[in-house]
Amino acid sequence: MSRVLLPLVVAVMLLPIGVMLVVAAQPEGGGGEFSLFANITEMFSSGNFPVYFRNSLILSLGIGFLDVVFSGATGYALAMLRFPGSRALFALVVGTLALSPTVVMVPVYVIVHQLGWIDTYQGMIVPSMMSAFGVFLVRQFALSLPKELLLAARVDGAGEFRIFVTIALPLLRPALLTLFLLQFLAQWDNLLWPLLVANDPSLWPLPVGISQLQTEIGYDIRLMTTAALVTAVPPIALMFFLQRYYVAGLTLGGVKR
């Protein structure tokens, strides 16, 4: 039964992508041969689509990298280092997960405005450069690390920073790559915060920019679908290359030695 059902489910899931490919490959005017690459070239040469694509890469890669750095260090510290208030601090971090992003959006916007970061990259990147979910994910994964290995390094005279960089980071790689992938996907599709902070079209990422393409290139379903298809390529490619780390990061983190 599964041999019949699984291909059917896959076919249904791939159907929208197939429709997008067909529409995006339509020639201009509806006549002639299919021309997907010609439409992609036209898409990148018309309007500000290359600018939107560049901005999405900057935001998604930048926020993903910073979240890995800060959440990774914080999660490891909360898992492996004992200091006064560590449990209360972790409980506070986890408690923020219950807050809706829209609840804190107004005070964060006020802070960004007072700092003069409206219409800047830092205004879009800094508020998201560390996430409570990232701290939680890395901490849970770090709890499964072999403490004997870390203890042996301390006995040999290694400092905490050296232990973290040379021993813990390689072992935390599945969790960190999972966090990077999730943050990249979240920021790649993020519409609301860039829409609030960035009024300058040269700073718009793809979700904001594509919503404005209709006024730049007119209502051309062929080019609009081409833009949507090109937008879907980076996250799909990244998910394909990091899928084994993604699975390991979500499963091994629940195993405590």
Rank of each mutant, 00 (worst) to 15 (best):
L195N: 11
G209Q: 00
R87G: 14
L143T: 10
D119P: 03
G47A: 08
V12I: 15
G62P: 07
L149I: 11
T178I: 10
V22I: 14
L223H: 03
M130P: 02
V247G: 14
L115K: 08
T166A: 14
L143P: 00
V10Q: 11
E160P: 08
A175V: 04
S71G: 10
L223R: 01
A186Q: 14
V4F: 14
G218W: 03
F70R: 04
V4Y: 14
G157R: 09
L176Q: 06
G31C: 01
T225D: 01
G209C: 01
I221P: 01
A79V: 02
F180L: 15
G134T: 02
E33R: 05
I236W: 01
N55R: 08
F65M: 13
M80G: 02
I221H: 05
S56K: 05
V108T: 15
I118C: 02
W117V: 10
L196N: 06
D200N: 11
P174R: 10
E148V: 07
P201T: 12
D119I: 04
L14I: 12
D67K: 10
R222G: 04
R257E: 06
H113K: 13
F141Q: 04
T178G: 02
F180W: 07
A79S: 11
M224I: 10
P101M: 09
R162M: 14
I58Y: 04
G32T: 12
E160H: 08
F141A: 11
V12E: 07
I40G: 02
G157V: 03
A198C: 04
S46M: 11
L171I: 10
D67T: 12
P16W: 09
M43Q: 09
G64E: 05
Q122K: 13
G30A: 07
L223K: 00
Y219I: 13
E160W: 08
N48S: 15
A168W: 04
P16H: 03
L143W: 01
F90M: 14
A168D: 08
M20S: 11
T251E: 14
D189G: 12
L229S: 05
Q212G: 01
L181K: 09
R257M: 00
L181W: 08
M129W: 12
I236S: 08
T120E: 09
A98E: 02
L143C: 01
I17Y: 15
E28K: 10
V247N: 13
